[in-house]
Amino acid sequence: MPADVISLREAQLSIEDGIAEFTHTRPERRNPLSLDLRADYIEMLDRVESDRSVRALIITGSGGSFCAGGDLRSLQERLQSDDPEINSPDAMRRRLMAGHAWFERLRNLEMPVIAAVDGPAAGAGMSIALAADFILASTRASFSMSFVKVGLLPDMAAFHTLPRIVGMAVAKDLMLTARRIGADEAERLGIVHSLHDAADLPAQARRFARRFAGASRAALAMTKRLLHKSFETPYAAMAELEANGQAVASATPEHVAAVRRFLAGEPSSFDWDREAAA
Protein backbone atom coordinates (compact mmCIF):
# COMPACT_ATOMS: atom_id res chain seq x y z
CA MET A 1 0.00 0.00 0.00
CA PRO A 2 1.46 3.42 -0.96
CA ALA A 3 2.22 5.90 1.77
CA ASP A 4 -0.44 8.38 2.81
CA VAL A 5 1.43 11.70 2.89
CA ILE A 6 -0.06 14.79 4.51
CA SER A 7 1.70 18.16 4.21
CA LEU A 8 1.12 20.38 7.23
CA ARG A 9 2.37 23.89 8.07
CA GLU A 10 5.93 23.13 9.12
CA ALA A 11 5.86 19.36 9.14
CA GLN A 12 4.90 16.36 7.08
CA LEU A 13 3.05 13.25 8.21
CA SER A 14 3.30 10.00 6.30
CA ILE A 15 1.60 6.72 7.18
CA GLU A 16 2.69 3.50 5.52
CA ASP A 17 2.32 -0.14 6.56
CA GLY A 18 1.19 0.83 10.06
CA ILE A 19 4.10 3.22 10.71
CA ALA A 20 3.47 6.96 11.08
CA GLU A 21 6.40 9.29 10.45
CA PHE A 22 6.21 12.95 11.50
CA THR A 23 8.99 15.13 10.05
CA HIS A 24 9.85 18.72 10.95
CA THR A 25 10.32 20.57 7.65
CA ARG A 26 11.96 23.93 8.40
CA PRO A 27 15.63 22.91 8.09
CA GLU A 28 16.74 26.40 7.03
CA ARG A 29 15.95 27.49 10.62
CA ARG A 30 16.94 24.16 12.20
CA ASN A 31 13.28 23.20 12.69
CA PRO A 32 12.29 25.44 15.63
CA LEU A 33 9.25 24.63 17.75
CA SER A 34 7.17 27.48 16.34
CA LEU A 35 3.47 28.08 16.89
CA ASP A 36 2.81 26.50 13.49
CA LEU A 37 4.80 23.38 14.38
CA ARG A 38 2.88 23.12 17.64
CA ALA A 39 -0.36 23.23 15.63
CA ASP A 40 1.05 20.51 13.37
CA TYR A 41 1.70 18.30 16.40
CA ILE A 42 -1.93 18.66 17.45
CA GLU A 43 -3.18 17.75 13.97
CA MET A 44 -0.76 14.81 13.78
CA LEU A 45 -1.91 13.48 17.14
CA ASP A 46 -5.56 13.77 16.11
CA ARG A 47 -4.86 11.64 13.03
CA VAL A 48 -2.58 9.08 14.64
CA GLU A 49 -4.75 8.55 17.71
CA SER A 50 -7.82 7.91 15.56
CA ASP A 51 -6.11 5.51 13.13
CA ARG A 52 -6.14 2.05 14.70
CA SER A 53 -3.92 0.71 11.92
CA VAL A 54 -0.95 2.76 13.16
CA ARG A 55 1.35 0.66 15.35
CA ALA A 56 4.25 3.06 15.98
CA LEU A 57 5.20 6.71 15.48
CA ILE A 58 8.57 8.09 14.36
CA ILE A 59 9.41 11.75 15.02
CA THR A 60 12.31 13.21 13.11
CA GLY A 61 13.75 16.37 11.58
CA SER A 62 15.00 17.30 8.14
CA GLY A 63 18.16 18.80 6.74
CA GLY A 64 20.49 17.50 9.45
CA SER A 65 18.60 19.03 12.38
CA PHE A 66 16.05 17.50 14.72
CA CYS A 67 14.70 20.62 16.45
CA ALA A 68 16.55 23.74 17.59
CA GLY A 69 14.08 24.43 20.39
CA GLY A 70 11.71 27.34 20.94
CA ASP A 71 11.23 29.94 18.24
CA LEU A 72 13.21 32.93 19.58
CA ARG A 73 11.80 35.19 16.88
CA SER A 74 8.33 34.53 18.22
CA LEU A 75 9.56 35.19 21.77
CA GLN A 76 11.09 38.48 20.66
CA GLU A 77 7.79 39.55 19.09
CA ARG A 78 6.09 38.74 22.39
CA LEU A 79 8.58 40.85 24.35
CA GLN A 80 8.08 43.80 21.99
CA SER A 81 4.29 43.69 22.23
CA ASP A 82 2.33 46.16 24.38
CA ASP A 83 -0.64 43.80 24.53
CA PRO A 84 -0.87 42.13 27.99
CA GLU A 85 -2.68 39.23 26.32
CA ILE A 86 0.59 38.56 24.50
CA ASN A 87 3.35 39.96 26.71
CA SER A 88 2.61 39.16 30.37
CA PRO A 89 3.56 36.40 32.80
CA ASP A 90 0.01 35.04 32.62
CA ALA A 91 0.15 34.99 28.81
CA MET A 92 3.35 32.94 28.99
CA ARG A 93 1.80 30.63 31.58
CA ARG A 94 -1.23 30.03 29.35
CA ARG A 95 1.01 29.44 26.35
CA LEU A 96 3.00 26.80 28.21
CA MET A 97 -0.09 25.10 29.62
CA ALA A 98 -1.59 24.94 26.12
CA GLY A 99 1.64 23.26 25.03
CA HIS A 100 1.38 20.71 27.81
CA ALA A 101 -2.12 19.78 26.62
CA TRP A 102 -0.77 18.27 23.40
CA PHE A 103 2.62 17.31 24.82
CA GLU A 104 1.01 15.01 27.38
CA ARG A 105 -0.92 13.37 24.55
CA LEU A 106 2.38 12.75 22.75
CA ARG A 107 4.04 11.30 25.83
CA ASN A 108 1.08 9.02 26.57
CA LEU A 109 0.40 8.01 22.97
CA GLU A 110 -0.82 4.42 23.03
CA MET A 111 1.95 3.07 20.83
CA PRO A 112 5.75 3.13 20.79
CA VAL A 113 7.15 6.55 19.89
CA ILE A 114 10.63 6.66 18.35
CA ALA A 115 12.61 9.89 18.05
CA ALA A 116 15.12 9.66 15.19
CA VAL A 117 17.55 12.45 16.06
CA ASP A 118 20.01 13.69 13.46
CA GLY A 119 21.89 16.86 14.29
CA PRO A 120 20.97 19.16 17.18
CA ALA A 121 18.09 18.57 19.59
CA ALA A 122 18.26 21.70 21.72
CA GLY A 123 15.99 23.17 24.37
CA ALA A 124 12.40 22.14 23.66
CA GLY A 125 13.78 19.99 20.86
CA MET A 126 15.56 17.84 23.43
CA SER A 127 12.38 17.84 25.53
CA ILE A 128 10.44 16.43 22.57
CA ALA A 129 13.04 13.70 22.09
CA LEU A 130 12.86 12.81 25.80
CA ALA A 131 9.10 12.31 25.49
CA ALA A 132 9.71 9.45 23.06
CA ASP A 133 9.95 5.86 24.27
CA PHE A 134 13.17 5.31 22.30
CA ILE A 135 15.73 7.73 20.90
CA LEU A 136 17.72 6.53 17.90
CA ALA A 137 20.44 9.02 17.04
CA SER A 138 22.94 9.64 14.32
CA THR A 139 26.60 9.83 15.28
CA ARG A 140 26.48 13.58 14.59
CA ALA A 141 23.47 14.19 16.86
CA SER A 142 23.78 16.48 19.86
CA PHE A 143 21.57 17.28 22.83
CA SER A 144 21.35 20.40 24.96
CA MET A 145 19.07 21.69 27.72
CA SER A 146 19.92 25.17 26.41
CA PHE A 147 17.21 27.12 28.25
CA VAL A 148 19.39 28.95 30.79
CA LYS A 149 21.48 30.34 27.94
CA VAL A 150 18.51 32.62 27.18
CA GLY A 151 17.48 33.13 30.81
CA LEU A 152 14.63 30.62 30.82
CA LEU A 153 13.74 27.43 32.69
CA PRO A 154 13.63 24.03 30.99
CA ASP A 155 10.10 23.30 29.83
CA MET A 156 8.01 20.83 27.84
CA ALA A 157 8.08 18.36 30.76
CA ALA A 158 11.90 18.22 30.95
CA PHE A 159 11.81 18.52 34.76
CA HIS A 160 9.74 15.33 34.77
CA THR A 161 11.42 13.27 32.07
CA LEU A 162 15.14 14.03 32.31
CA PRO A 163 15.76 13.15 36.01
CA ARG A 164 13.89 9.88 35.52
CA ILE A 165 16.18 8.92 32.65
CA VAL A 166 19.59 10.08 33.89
CA GLY A 167 19.13 10.63 37.64
CA MET A 168 19.07 13.87 39.61
CA ALA A 169 22.81 14.65 39.62
CA VAL A 170 23.19 14.35 35.85
CA ALA A 171 19.92 16.23 35.27
CA LYS A 172 21.32 19.12 37.35
CA ASP A 173 24.52 19.02 35.33
CA LEU A 174 22.71 19.18 31.99
CA MET A 175 20.10 21.75 33.04
CA LEU A 176 22.26 24.14 35.06
CA THR A 177 25.23 24.18 32.67
CA ALA A 178 23.18 23.99 29.45
CA ARG A 179 26.18 22.23 27.97
CA ARG A 180 25.90 20.37 24.70
CA ILE A 181 26.51 16.63 24.77
CA GLY A 182 27.33 14.51 21.78
CA ALA A 183 25.65 11.31 20.70
CA ASP A 184 28.25 9.07 22.38
CA GLU A 185 27.78 10.71 25.78
CA ALA A 186 23.99 10.70 25.38
CA GLU A 187 24.15 6.96 24.76
CA ARG A 188 26.34 6.40 27.84
CA LEU A 189 23.87 8.37 29.97
CA GLY A 190 20.97 6.21 28.82
CA ILE A 191 19.29 8.97 26.81
CA VAL A 192 19.96 7.35 23.43
CA HIS A 193 18.95 3.77 22.68
CA SER A 194 21.26 3.24 19.70
CA LEU A 195 23.59 5.12 17.35
CA HIS A 196 23.61 4.98 13.54
CA ASP A 197 25.27 6.66 10.60
CA ALA A 198 23.31 9.74 9.54
CA ALA A 199 22.53 8.30 6.11
CA ASP A 200 21.27 5.05 7.63
CA LEU A 201 19.22 6.55 10.49
CA PRO A 202 15.85 6.89 8.66
CA ALA A 203 15.92 3.27 7.49
CA GLN A 204 17.02 2.02 10.91
CA ALA A 205 14.22 3.98 12.63
CA ARG A 206 11.63 2.49 10.27
CA ARG A 207 13.04 -1.02 10.76
CA PHE A 208 12.92 -0.51 14.53
CA ALA A 209 9.31 0.74 14.38
CA ARG A 210 8.17 -2.15 12.17
CA ARG A 211 9.31 -4.63 14.80
CA PHE A 212 6.28 -3.59 16.88
CA ALA A 213 3.82 -4.46 14.09
CA GLY A 214 2.88 -7.84 15.56
CA ALA A 215 2.58 -6.66 19.19
CA SER A 216 -0.67 -6.18 21.07
CA ARG A 217 -1.51 -2.48 20.85
CA ALA A 218 -3.55 -2.76 24.06
CA ALA A 219 -0.72 -4.43 25.99
CA LEU A 220 1.82 -1.85 24.82
CA ALA A 221 -0.52 1.03 25.66
CA MET A 222 -1.29 -0.16 29.19
CA THR A 223 2.36 -1.01 29.87
CA LYS A 224 3.37 2.55 28.92
CA ARG A 225 0.66 4.07 31.10
CA LEU A 226 1.62 2.04 34.17
CA LEU A 227 5.33 2.78 33.70
CA HIS A 228 4.54 6.51 33.54
CA LYS A 229 2.72 6.24 36.88
CA SER A 230 5.24 3.99 38.60
CA PHE A 231 7.52 6.60 40.22
CA GLU A 232 4.70 8.45 41.99
CA THR A 233 2.31 5.58 42.78
CA PRO A 234 2.37 3.62 46.07
CA TYR A 235 2.81 -0.14 45.87
CA ALA A 236 -0.77 -1.02 46.77
CA ALA A 237 -2.23 1.34 44.18
CA MET A 238 0.23 0.10 41.57
CA ALA A 239 -0.71 -3.49 42.30
CA GLU A 240 -4.38 -2.66 41.77
CA LEU A 241 -3.66 -0.86 38.50
CA GLU A 242 -1.57 -3.82 37.38
CA ALA A 243 -4.35 -6.29 38.21
CA ASN A 244 -6.98 -4.21 36.43
CA GLY A 245 -4.79 -3.83 33.37
CA GLN A 246 -4.00 -7.52 33.26
CA ALA A 247 -7.70 -8.34 33.43
CA VAL A 248 -8.31 -6.20 30.36
CA ALA A 249 -5.28 -7.54 28.46
CA SER A 250 -6.23 -11.16 29.13
CA ALA A 251 -9.53 -10.61 27.33
CA THR A 252 -8.07 -9.10 24.15
CA PRO A 253 -8.04 -11.02 20.86
CA GLU A 254 -4.25 -10.62 20.70
CA HIS A 255 -3.79 -12.55 23.97
CA VAL A 256 -6.21 -15.29 22.92
CA ALA A 257 -4.43 -15.70 19.58
CA ALA A 258 -1.00 -15.71 21.23
CA VAL A 259 -1.98 -18.51 23.61
CA ARG A 260 -3.43 -20.53 20.74
CA ARG A 261 -0.26 -20.15 18.68
CA PHE A 262 1.95 -21.10 21.63
CA LEU A 263 -0.01 -24.29 22.37
CA ALA A 264 -0.04 -25.19 18.68
CA GLY A 265 3.72 -24.79 18.44
CA GLU A 266 3.40 -21.86 16.03
CA PRO A 267 5.70 -18.81 16.11
CA SER A 268 4.54 -15.76 18.04
CA SER A 269 3.34 -12.76 16.04
CA PHE A 270 5.60 -10.57 18.22
CA ASP A 271 9.13 -11.72 18.93
CA TRP A 272 11.65 -8.90 19.34
CA ASP A 273 14.69 -11.17 19.30
CA ARG A 274 13.50 -12.97 16.16
CA GLU A 275 12.90 -9.69 14.35
CA ALA A 276 16.31 -8.38 15.42
CA ALA A 277 18.01 -11.40 13.90
CA ALA A 278 16.06 -11.18 10.63
Score class of each variant (00 low, 15 high):
Glu185Asp: 07
Ala276Asp: 10
Gln204Ile: 04
Leu96Asp: 09
Ala213Cys: 03
Arg94Gln: 14
Leu263Thr: 13
Arg52His: 10
Ile114Phe: 11
Ser144Trp: 00
Pro27Val: 00
Ala215Phe: 04
Ser14Ile: 07
Met44Glu: 06
Met168Leu: 14
Ala3Gln: 07
Phe231Arg: 11
Leu79Pro: 01
Ser88Ala: 08
Glu110Ser: 07
Ala121Thr: 00
Leu79Met: 10
Leu226Ser: 07
Leu35Glu: 09
Leu201His: 01
Met168Lys: 14
Ala68His: 02
Ile128Pro: 01
Gly167Ser: 09
Glu187Thr: 13
Pro154Cys: 10
Leu45Glu: 05
Ala115Tyr: 02
Met156Val: 08
Arg188Ile: 12
Arg260Ile: 13
Ala277Met: 15
Arg94Leu: 09
Tyr41Thr: 00
Leu174Arg: 02
Ala257Lys: 04
Asp83Val: 05
Ala141Leu: 08
Phe103Asn: 00
Ser216Tyr: 08
Glu254Lys: 08
Phe66Leu: 02
Met92Gly: 14
Glu254Met: 13
Leu189Lys: 06
Val117Pro: 00
Pro89Met: 09
Glu275Ile: 04
Leu33Phe: 10
Ala11Pro: 02
Ala243Arg: 11
Arg107His: 09
Leu136Ile: 15
Met97Gln: 09
Leu45Asn: 06
Ala171Lys: 04
Ser138Glu: 08
Ser127Tyr: 03
Ile128Asn: 00
Pro89Thr: 08
Asp82Lys: 12
Gly123Asp: 05
Leu109Gln: 03
Ala115Phe: 01
Leu174Phe: 11
Arg164Ala: 12
Glu77Gln: 14
Ile128Leu: 14
Met145Asn: 01
Pro267Tyr: 11
Ser268Leu: 15
Asn108Met: 13
Ala215Gly: 09
Asp197Arg: 08
Ser62Ala: 12
Thr23Trp: 03
Arg217Cys: 12
Met92Trp: 09
Leu130Lys: 03
Arg29Gly: 01
Ile86Met: 03
Asn108Thr: 14
Met44Arg: 00
Asp82Phe: 06
Ala68Gly: 08
Ser142Gly: 15
Arg207Val: 09
Ala101Cys: 10
Val48Ser: 04
Ser194His: 08
Arg180Val: 15
Val256Tyr: 08
Ser268Tyr: 06
Pro163Asp: 08
Glu254Thr: 05
Leu106Pro: 03
Ala213Ile: 05
Leu153Ile: 04
Thr252Pro: 04
Leu227Tyr: 10
Pro27Thr: 02
Arg55Ile: 07
Ala157Val: 06
Ala264Trp: 11
Asp118Trp: 01
Arg211His: 03
Gly182Val: 05
His196Glu: 03
Gly151Arg: 05
Asp4Arg: 11
Met175Asp: 05
Pro202Asn: 05
Glu77Ile: 11
Tyr235Ala: 15
Leu152Gln: 04
Glu232Ala: 12
Gly69Thr: 00
Leu96Phe: 15
Met126Trp: 02
